[in-house]
């Protein structure tokens, strides 16, 4: 169904359309929340609050970005707020300059080791800091562009490139040590 039509229907009070929209994006939202909160229970609470906020503020969505980007920005802000309240967590805004152009590659294991690889990757991500796991999640899992990622995180595109480079570097170091 057309996303714009869906939003219009929700604004007219159609519950079924909101349920449909939720089913469309719930996994992406939960994945992003997990990369910040790390714990599933907390991530679920963040997703719940985020979707309630989406419903509340849907009339303010001006379609300057895609709905997915807008939603993920709400999830991101809610996750940061949740972590600040629950764990006195500080999301550091500063990103130190470093060369983001150097290419980093990582070897992909055989298909036989798929389950083991999945666990190893999950463990690696859990050992990265929140910023790194968020940027990897948005770029590689959600397949968002640098610009969309920057919009969600509230960074500039060059900051995202630097962060992505650092995340790849740290991911590779941790992954190969495991």
């Amino acid at each position: 169904m057309n996303e714009q039509l869906l939003i219009q229907k929700i604004l007219q009070g159609d519950t079924a359309s909101f349920r449909y929209l939720y089913r469309l994006y719930a996994l992406s939202a939960l994945q992003l929340a997990m990369s910040i909160c790390k714990q599933k229970e907390n991530a679920e609470e963040v997703v719940q609050n985020s979707f309630i906020n989406v419903f509340k503020y849907l009339k303010n969505f001006r379609q300057e970005s895609t709905f997915k980007t807008w939603l993920l920005r709400i999830v991101f802000n809610e996750a940061i707020r949740f972590q600040k309240v629950e764990h006195k967590f500080q999301w550091q805004e500063m990103i130190q300059n470093e060369n983001g152009e150097e290419s980093i590659s990582i070897s992909i294991p055989n298909a036989i080791d798929k389950k083991e690889t999945k666990e190893q990757v999950a463990k690696t991500i859990s050992l990265l800091n929140e910023k790194e796991s968020v940027v990897l999640n948005l770029f590689y899992l959600e397949e968002l562009s640098i610009k969309e990622t920057a919009d969600i995180l509230g960074y500039t595109e060059s900051n995202v490139k630097v962060l992505l480079h650092r995340a790849r570097k740290n991911f590779k170091n941790v992954y190969e040590k495991l």
Binding site: T15, Y22, A26, L27, L30, S105, T117, V121, L141, R168
Partner: peptide, 24 residues
């Protein structure tokens, strides 16, 4: 560079149903 393939293993397969009913 291998990252895409590795990260793709992390897709969640399902979302708890209670979450949907709580929100609704």
């Amino acid at each position: 560079d291998g990252f895409y393939e590795l990260m793709q293993t992390q897709h969640l397969l399902e979302i708890p149903s209670f979450l949907e009913s709580n929100i609704m």
